[in-house]
Amino acid sequence: MLVVNGLKADVGGKEILRGLNLEVNPGEVHAIMGPNGSGKSTFAHVLSGREGYTVTAGSATFEGQDLLALEPEERARLGLFLAFQYPVELPGVNNTYFLKAALNSIRKSRGEHELDAVSFLRLIKDKLKILHLDDSLLKRAVNAGFSGGEKKRNEIFQMALLEPKLAILDETDSGLDIDALRVVADGVNALRSPQRSMIVVTHYQRLLDYIQPDVVHVLSKGRIIRSGGKELALELEEKGYGWIDAEGQAA
C-alpha cells in the first residue's frame, strides 16, 4: 500500500529525514517510535503534503501512485489521513459544514454522489457514538475552544467519517490523560480493518498498550534503525532511547 524508499527531506536547509525506508501493507498497524527531533513528525507531514519541507531524494508511493507529486487534498482523496498532533482551531468555520465539505469532496473525487443533509446527519450521528462525543460538537466551530482531549477525539471522529485507507496518527497520545487516551484508542481500534492500514507515531510506549501494532520501528536521526514486533516497544521503554542509539552507533 505505502512504499517509502530512501526518503530524504530538509526543513529550512537542515536535513531531517536521511534515507527513510518503510513498507506498509493493507491492514497493518505500524508504530514509529523515536526520541524528540528524530524526524517522526516531519515524516508524517511530508507524507501528507504540508508546505515547508523539501524532499531532496527518495520516493513515496501510495497504491502505486507517486504521493510526493500530489497536492494535500489529492492525497486525502486517495485515502490518506493525518490525525494532527496539534489540531488547528478554525474560528467561525462550523464543524458540521466542515465535515460535510470534506466528506463530499472525497466522495465526489471517487465518482460517488454527494450526501444530502439528512443522510449526512444520520451518518455523523452514528460515528459520534464510536468516539463517545456529544452532538453539541457539531454546532461548534472546528476545534475552537476545544479541550486537548476533545481536539484529539475530533481528529479520530473525522477519521471515522472519512474512512481512509491509510491513517497516520501523529503523537495522538500527547497531552492526553489516561481516560482520554483510552477513549481515543478505543476509537482507533474500532476502525481497524483488514483493508485499513495505520502508522502510529509516538514518543511513548503507553499508547501501544491500547493500540497493538503489528510492527514497531525505531526512528533515529532521520532513519529507521531498527524494526521488530511489539516487544521492541517494551524493550525501548525499559532501556530508553539511549540504548538503541548506542547500539546503532556500535553497528
Partner: peptide, 25 residues
C-alpha cells in the same frame, strides 16, 4: 488552517472561501 482543511480533501479554493466566511461569520 489552509493545510488542515486541504488535508481533509477540501480544495485550496474552497478552503480559502471557508476560512474567509468563518472570519466574516
Amino acid at each position: 488552517m489552509l493545510f488542515y482543511l486541504r488535508s481533509r480533501g477540501i480544495s485550496a479554493a474552497l478552503a480559502r472561501r471557508m476560512l474567509c466566511l468563518g472570519f466574516a461569520g
